[in-house]
Design a protein around this nucleic acid. Structure first.
Lengths: 202, 202
DNA sequence: ACACCCTAACTGTGATCACAGATCGCGGCA
DNA sequence: TGCCGCGATCTGTGATCACAGTTAGGGTGT
């Protein structure tokens, strides 16, 4: 989800098990889950890897994200508490300070961005919905965040800080439509950046 | 998903493995996946069972279903092909003939209902979305369909055939709002029936 | 007659072995 | 010098064993 593993990168159950200092069994179960929801894939040769991303699959995932995460933003604006807002603002600031830093660190920015988004989603009090969105990020994260690490200058030029500002303000104000709109702009902005890199298949 | 297992019903990995004539390993993996997405749960005593359903969890799942499946209905109305429509109408008729049969069989009705809904969802061409909805049905199915099997008379009195008729017509006409509306009515109708049985916890 | 304890039979989980298949590299032959 | 082929090593998967923990039932003691 954090882009630590690039699309196409292979991994071995045994080497992961050795790295973590456990036997193969727990790794098998974890990987089997990720394979089941297509966050990882096993090739016909039995090699496990991060799936490659095609343009059509990227657009499909983005369409679903717009619907699901857009709904979550609406619902968050409806149901957020003051504790939710405090958490949300904390992560917004963390992202902002990293994005505006003289030499921004992509890892930190990626993490703060994720935590900000999920703080909003958790404010819906719909844990099922949060789980669904986690699955979506698991699938699209390798592309989104791996490319961001390659092009960290996007942190400065991209509109993410502005989208975040509007999102947080709308959620706090209880303005459902504005919250959805800000989130949609955030997602589509990042998506068109990724498409513009031309690194997607097909 | 079909209500074959009642909420609270326990199962044993070894007995399932013996029933299916395989070793424990494939059962372990399958159950682990269902446990991971909370379609099954392992109690502190290590017993595996179908989770009990509380009223608040039922309402949460219903809210998410309304958003996600409602979006799917819209998208289906936008993108359905004539092949999609043929499949959808086939399952609608299967459900109808079972619901209006002199002695309706709950299993058959449940199956036709599921196949009708998923034929609509598949018409979106968003396989990720279909997978998400499968997860939702896996969680709410035990309650929805187990209760339907207990009270098969609901097949006659419930408004499902009418909701289905409107849904199919709207999808065919490309009327997105009407498709979402018909599906929302179908879901809320079934949900209020379940709530009225008073069998949910809390 | 009733209550308590102990034992035997289960539970899921981790580890290890076995196996079929694929891949990669080294060595030999042309 | 270049290419082909065989073998060693890797892959994930199924099966089996070991283990800690719980549960339920029967027998014993009061």
């Amino acid at each position: 989800m954090s882009g630590e593993l690039a699309p196409g990168q292979k991994m071995s159950l045994r080497s992961v098990a050795e790295t973590l200092g456990v036997s193969m069994m727990p790794v098998r179960e974890a990987v089997a889950r990720l394979v089941a929801d297509q966050s990882l894939e096993v090739l016909p040769n039995r090699a496990v890897r991060v799936p490659l991303m095609t343009l059509s699959r990227f657009r499909e995932l983005t369409a679903v994200r717009l619907a699901v995460e857009g709904f979550a933003a609406e619902e968050a604006a409806r149901r957020r508490t003051s504790q939710d807002m405090a958490e949300i603002k904390r992560f917004e600031e963390a992202f902002l300070s990293e994005a505006r830093s003289p030499n921004p660190q992509a890892d930190q920015a990626v993490r703060a961005n994720k935590e900000l988004h999920f703080a909003v989603y958790r404010a819906t009090s719909l844990s099922t919905l949060v789980g669904i969105i986690e699955g979506l990020w698991l699938k699209i994260g390798p592309v989104l965040n791996f490319d961001l690490k390659i092009s960290p200058e996007r942190l400065r030029t991209g509109g993410a800080p502005e989208h975040h500002r509007k999102l947080v303000a709308a959620v706090e104000a209880g303005n459902e439509a504005a919250a959805r709109n800000a989130l949609v702009n955030d997602i589509t902005g990042a998506a068109s950046f990724i498409e513009s890199t031309g690194r997607l298949l097909d």
